[in-house]
Structures are given as structure tokens and as C-alpha cells.
Design a protein around this nucleic acid. Structure first.
Lengths: 339, 339
DNA sequence: ATGAAAGCGCTAACAT
DNA sequence: ATGTTAGCGCTTTCAT
């Protein structure tokens, strides 16, 4: 159907090996010959088969990317960053969406990941089981985790504890002492790495403790990483008798927006009555006027991709984790407490 | 390194063909033998090479998915839906992010898409050039476009004109006559399919015309499909002398939220002073209380995937386009004009 | 600088 | 029901 290397060779009057060399730009081929071959190939519309090349070289020139979900600002940004970096290196991407619930997990793991679709794997915010880690390691593929730490695997991400501390500290500096922490990680998201909410809670506690503010356990509420979830928790609190917190530290910007919207619904002002801060710098955060601790998932993804790419290119494996910086962005949603 | 089919065959004391058959569950193998083979394979940690299978069968059992960007609610939802459907059929996904600007476009097209990574291609909201369409067709791969129509290719999506008409009609029914239409499709997004903003504008005009409301060209403003873009357009309008529109029909929920936030910034109320409606039913729309014309991108993606999958399975090719329904969801952001 | 020929790891006839 | 043998479309020694 489509032309094969032999067709190009015949049409160009050279051998298949010469075609192969010419098309890959190997130095051992006469420039004139190479030129001819390239033209013939172009005219014929010849494109080498990735599968055939893969089987011959043992390398697919693709990378497996595994995510727990995709339709999320954070995950899709991460993947976008990964893809951009892979593309630069002429690598393709095989994307596997495990799904939060993970019913497909086993099958993906077995049938696909280990099925040599790619030469490396970049795992996004996946909480691998010990068994999965072993299987992964058994493949011998360079592996990296991005977005969160996983024991025994190197990762690229941010210092979650420090980010949470920074957000909380900002509120404390403003004078807040009664701060509500809204986070995710409840059952529905079990397949997601639980370290993130845990670390952010840790940072929250650290900041409070450093400021000598006692932690009120009822001021820590866990749900899911969505605006809807944080909104209904906030609703519940504001529908109650009070006293109300003077500030909210949400573990993500979506949660922060959900909380802010709930506050508005209750006729209160942000930050007039309650200040709100999140983590992320979501696309909607700037228009929303949300103060946040910004992270750059696309850069994290790109960095992760580059690391495995370097390893594939034969550079010495870069062990050790990579922590990217976060920055506090003050917009309008935080201010001093009422009085 | 990793075990090959021959290793399994030797260990199981059978031939490679029997291993191949057993592992693929072909009927012509003794159940007992098959059982043994499966166990041996599992113990050895054998996983067949996708590349080798692809080269032998001529099928990769993967589908190419092409997107203009990923970090967007709409695109990532679409891809999630596609992936879910592929996974069900045990197909993998090769994802190609062309990028809005399309500098990578040529290369992706040539090096990757046509490089036999997948057995079909699902293109998300891509505005193919005539040349690209020809190249695509030349590959002989079953192709489908999702999220928007492309001339000469079948597609799955919604009736854009009708959706826009529905949104506009809702505002008209409420009594609005001075409606601002905010849309995308300006230069920065050229690589995106231009049909969507065009069709939505058409629906807007249709509804006005049917209601006998003259179209004021200054009430149609094009920017990008982002909250930031619509927000600044709205700012500009509200910073001006007026008169202000009594309602806004934004071509996406993100744009609608951007507009609403601008309205709030100007001390006005939604829908008290200005009503706002969008299209999408974005994740944040419910918490935001945004009235919208809902579409289900994940379902669109799934439907598109199923169509090419069916074709790959040998079912007769399903020509013709598939239009999925949209529904008006009234939340708090629309109401009757002030008086 | 170029060609011939031997694989790469599978699947698919074709035997038996 | 199982084994033998050819490929599949490339890349890569090894010659020349």
C-alpha cells in the first residue's frame, strides 16, 4: 500500500541500506546520493515504519506517559509540558489514562506499559503500589515520577510542604489566626498520590506551629481537589453557626475558587470577611483575582521528560529529585482580618 | 534482557506458535497447554513486543490522536473520552500536541502521524489545510475529526449554530434585546478550527434575526477562548461610557466567567445588571452558578473513537457526521433585564 | 561510499 | 492441536 524502503531504493537506483543511511542523515553517504534519496522518498511519500525501526533498533523513540486523569488543569498542563519536550527530541508520546478508580490499572500496566510502547516512562502523580514499582523496575525502562514523590523513584515536582507553609505564612503575616485548610485526598481520589494533600497539611501545620497558633482539628477539612467539593464543605461551614474562619488556605486554586464562590453565595466578601488563598496559579486564577502560590506544571513535565530523554541519549542517569520553585502571587483575595 | 517468545516456548516445552496462539487466546490451542503457557509467561514476566506484533500483523493496535493544545477543559475532556474508549478495546493512544502556533505541525505530520504509530487518527478541533488533508488521506488510515467540522472529513461534535441559537434565544426569552457576543478565533488561535466561532456567531445572528432584533456589529467582539481575553474586552466596554449591554452570550464558559468577573469588578451584579450565558458546562460552571448550554466533550471523544475502532474492526465504515445533543442549564447568571 | 545478508521478535500460512 | 517456515520493514555488521 504505502511505499516501503525497497521501493525508494529501486526508484533511486541504490540499495536499501543506502536509503536507510541517507534518510537518517548518517555521515557515511555521499551528499549527492543522499539528496537524490531524499527527493525520491519525498516524491513517493515514503515514511519509515516506526514499528520496523523499533524492532530493528530495539528503541521505539516514544515515551510512555501515565496519568490518573487528564481533564484537569494540573494534569493536562503537565502532559503538555512533557509532550513539548518529547517533540523537541523527535520522540512521540504514548499516553495512558489510568483513571482515578484504577479498574483499568492492571491491564494498562501489563498489556501496555510493559509492552514496549515506549523507551521510558513518565508517571504523573501516580501512587504506585510496591508491586507495580517492582514490575516497572523489571522492565528496565528509565522511569520518573512528576508532580509528587513516590518512594523509590526519582521525581520532579515542588516542595509541597514549603509551598503550603508559604501560603499559610502569608495569611498569618496578614494577621489571621483562625485559618481553615481545605484539601483533597479523600477516598474518591485514592489512586492519586496521597502525599500531596498530606504534605500540604504538614506545611499548614508547620506554619501555624511556628507562629504559635494552636491547630484546631475541625479547621482541617478533606474532600476532593475540586471546586464543587470545597464549595460544599464551605457551604456547610457557613450554613452553620460560626464562628467562621477569617481565612481559607485551599490546597488547590480550584478548591480556593469553590470556597470563594461559597463565601459570595453567603453574602460575604472576599477578602473583607474571609481571605482565600490557593496553590497552583490555575488559568482562571488571574481573572478571578485569586492570591496563590504559583507552580508551573508544564515546566515540571518538561523537566521530567528531559531527564528521561537525557538518559535515553546515553548521558549518565540523573538520580536525585528535582524541586522547582514556587512563588507567592498576591492578587485581591487576601487581606487583613476584619479587625 | 527481557524474555522473548522463544524463551517462553522453551520453558513451556512448546513451539513459539503455540505460545503466540495461547497468549492471544486463539481457539486452536488445548486449554491445558494454554494454561501452562500463560503461567510460564507470567513467571518469566514475558510481555509481547508491540512493535514486533505490529510489524507482523500490519496493525499497531494504537490510534493517533492529534490536538491543537491540551491544557484546556474542552480538549483534555475530549482526549479523556477518546482514551477511555480506546482502552476498552485494548487500543493504546499516541498523542500529538500540534500547538496552536503550529511550528511543529509539519514535522509532526510527517515524522509521526504518517509514521504508522497508529492504525487510525482522531483529530481534535484541528483545521487541516487542503494539503494536510491530502497527506492524511494518502495514509489510508481511517480518520475522524471531533469537536468541529472539517470539510471532506466526517466528524463528531455538536450543532454549533443551534447551540448558539439556544443560548441567545434564552436571553431573548428573558427579555434582552441588547446582547453582547464574546467569542474567540482571533489571530492567536488560527490553528484552531475557525468554524466554531463562526458557527456560534451565526447562531447568535439567527436568533436575533428571528426575534426581529437588529444586529449591532459593535456588539460582536472576537478575542481568544480564554477568561483573560473576554475579561479584558469586557473591562474595556464597562470602562467606557455605555450604554452597556444587558446580557452577554460568551462562546465558552471560560469566556463567560471572565466576563462575569469583569462585571463584578465594575461593581455590577450578575444577573442584576448584566446576564451572562456561556457554552460548555465547564467544571467550574456549576460552582460558579453559570447558566450555560452544556455539551459533553468526553462523550464526543468516545463516540469518535468508537467510530474508527468499529472501522478497524471491519464493520462497514460509518460515513456521515454525528451530532450530539446539547442542553440548556439554567443556573443563576441569567435573568430578566433591569426593566 | 555502497551493497549483501543476517537478524530484530513476532504472526501466519502451511504442514502434520 | 501443534510445529515449521516464511516473512513483516527496517537496521546493522561485514564485505567490497
Amino acid at each position: 500500500m504505502s511505499p516501503h524502503i525497497k521501493d525508494v531504493a529501486d526508484a533511486a537506483g541504490v540499495s536499501v541500506s543506502t536509503v536507510s543511511r541517507a534518510l537518517r542523515g548518517l555521515p557515511t553517504v555521499n551528499p549527492a546520493t543522499a539528496e537524490v534519496v531524499r527527493n525520491v522518498a519525498a516524491n513517493l511519500g515514503y515514511v519509515p515504519s516506526a514499528a520496523a525501526a523499533a524492532i530493528a533498533t530495539g528503541r521505539t523513540r516514544a515515551v510512555n506517559v501515565v496519568v490518573p486523569a487528564l481533564a484537569t488543569w494540573f494534569f493536562s498542563s503537565l502532559v503538555e509540558g512533557i509532550d513539548r519536550e518529547l517533540r523537541k527530541a523527535s520522540y512521540d508520546m504514548a499516553l495512558f489514562d489510568l483513571g482515578y478508580t484504577g479498574t483499568e490499572r492492571q491491564r494498562v500496566f501489563h498489556r501496555s506499559l510493559l509492552r514496549h510502547r515506549g523507551d521510558a516512562v513518565v508517571a504523573v502523580c501516580i501512587d504506585f503500589s510496591a508491586e507495580e514499582r517492582d514490575e516497572l523496575r523489571a522492565t528496565g525502562l528509565p522511569t520518573i515520577v512528576v508532580g509528587n514523590p513516590v518512594e523509590g523513584l526519582r521525581f520532579v515536582g515542588i516542595d509541597e510542604v514549603a509551598a503550603a507553609r508559604l501560603a499559610t505564612q502569608h495569611l498569618i503575616d496578614l494577621g489571621h489566626r483562625d485559618i481553615l485548610h481545605l484539601s483533597g485526598g479523600a477516598e474518591a481520589e485514592l489512586r492519586l498520590n496521597a502525599r500531596v494533600p498530606k504534605d500540604r497539611l504538614q506545611g499548614f501545620q508547620d506554619a501555624l506551629q511556628a507562629a504559635g497558633i494552636p491547630l484546631d482539628p475541625s479547621r482541617v477539612r478533606l474532600g476532593r481537589f475540586t471546586a464543587a467539593a470545597s464549595g460544599s464543605i464551605m457551604d456547610e461551614i457557613l450554613d452553620g453557626p460560626g464562628p467562621y474562619p477569617t481565612a481559607v488556605f485551599a490546597a488547590s486554586d480550584e478548591m480556593a475558587m469553590g470556597a470563594a464562590l461559597s463565601i459570595y453565595r453567603h453574602g460575604m466578601a472576599v477578602p473583607g470577611d474571609i481571605s482565600v488563598i490557593g496553590i497552583d496559579d490555575h488559568t482562571l486564577s488571574a481573572p478571578f483575582g485569586l492570591t496563590t502560590v504559583a507552580q508551573r506544571p508544564a515546566e515540571q513535565g518538561g523537566a521530567a521528560a528531559r531527564i528521561v530523554l537525557d538518559e535515553l541519549a546515553g548521558h549518565s542517569a540523573n538520580e536525585g529529585n528535582l524541586l522547582l520553585p514556587v512563588t507567592l502571587i498576591e492578587r485581591g483575595s487576601t487581606g487583613a482580618p476584619a479587625h
